[in-house]
Structures are given as structure tokens and as C-alpha cells.
């Protein structure tokens, strides 16, 4: 994996390395199977249209778990995800490029543990935030 990030190296306002994703309809089917989310709006176009949707949409929680990956990629093996909150604000469509981003909003030490809080979001090609949330992680302190 990439180099470990340490608490002492993190600054409020600092950006996390972004993560690009482009879920395909094939990935949605894999996700339906792996996650148990078998809502047909994610793989059955006729059904989705009948429900008033423009077509098949990406599972909110798949896009949300992309943000989980953004965090575990950044925090590395030495970091721990303590809390993740996600709000599904808009629909994502298969084939669209999604960019997962994060920015550090707070850092603090409690009980000798080093916490960092980030705002995180998924951005579609039109710059709209379709999933927003926060992540709290602990990081190793550093030297």
C-alpha cells in the first residue's frame, strides 16, 4: 500500500487524495449480489422507468462505500475508521465518472488516540455532490 499518513502530518483544510470511480452496469450486478441489495431499480431498466426513474441507478450504498474506500486508502493499514455517515443526495447513473473527495475539518487527541474528522463527498461529472458525509478516523501519531 501507499505510505502511511500520520496525525502530525495532517492539517485542517487539507485535501485527501481523490478517488475516481466509473461504475458500470456489470459492477451494479456484482454489487447487488455481494451486498444483498436486490432492489430492481439497480438492474432492471423497465422496472426503473416504471418507478419514474430515468433508468437504472447506482446503488446509493455502493457510491457510499466508494467513500469508505477513499478513507481506507488514505488512512492506510495504520489508520482506523471509527465512524462514517452518508447522505444520498442525488442519483448516480452507470457509466458516469464519479470523483470521491475529502477534506480534513478537525483533528483532536482524546484518551491518547489521534482523531481526524473529514467531510467527504461523491461528485458527478456536472460537479453535483450526489453523496455527502463525514468520516472520523484515528491515525498513528507519528514521531
Amino acid at each position: 500500500m501507499t505510505k502511511q499518513v500520520y496525525f502530525q502530518d495532517v492539517a485542517v483544510g487539507g485535501e485527501l487524495p481523490s478517488l475516481m470511480k466509473q461504475p458500470t452496469s456489470r459492477q451494479l450486478v456484482m454489487w447487488a449480489g455481494a451486498s444483498g441489495d436486490l432492489n430492481p431499480i439497480h438492474y432492471d431498466k423497465d422496472y426503473a422507468i416504471k418507478r419514474g426513474l430515468p433508468g437504472v441507478i447506482v446503488h446509493g450504498q455502493l457510491a457510499g462505500c466508494f467513500l469508505g474506500q477513499l478513507i481506507t486508502d488514505w488512512a492506510g493499514d495504520g489508520g482506523n475508521l471509527k465512524k462514517l455517515t452518508l447522505s444520498y443526495k442525488g442519483m448516480n447513473f452507470p457509466g458516469e465518472a464519479l470523483t470521491c473527495r475529502g477534506v480534513v475539518t478537525r483533528k483532536y487527541v482524546e484518551d491518547d488516540r489521534h482523531f481526524v474528522v473529514c467531510n467527504i463527498w461523491v461528485e458527478n461529472p456536472r460537479g453535483e455532490k450526489t453523496v455527502t458525509g463525514t468520516a472520523t478516523v484515528t491515525l498513528p501519531a507519528g514521531d
Binding site: 446503488h59 450504498q61 457510499g64 469508505g68 465512524k83 462514517l84 452518508l86 447522505s87 444520498y88
Partner: peptide, 10 residues
Amino acid sequence: TVLHGSTELE
């Protein structure tokens, strides 16, 4: 129609 609104994980 069922949509996902939000998620929290600890």
C-alpha cells in the same frame, strides 16, 4: 418506490 436516504456506520 424505495430509495436509500442515509447510512451511519461505527
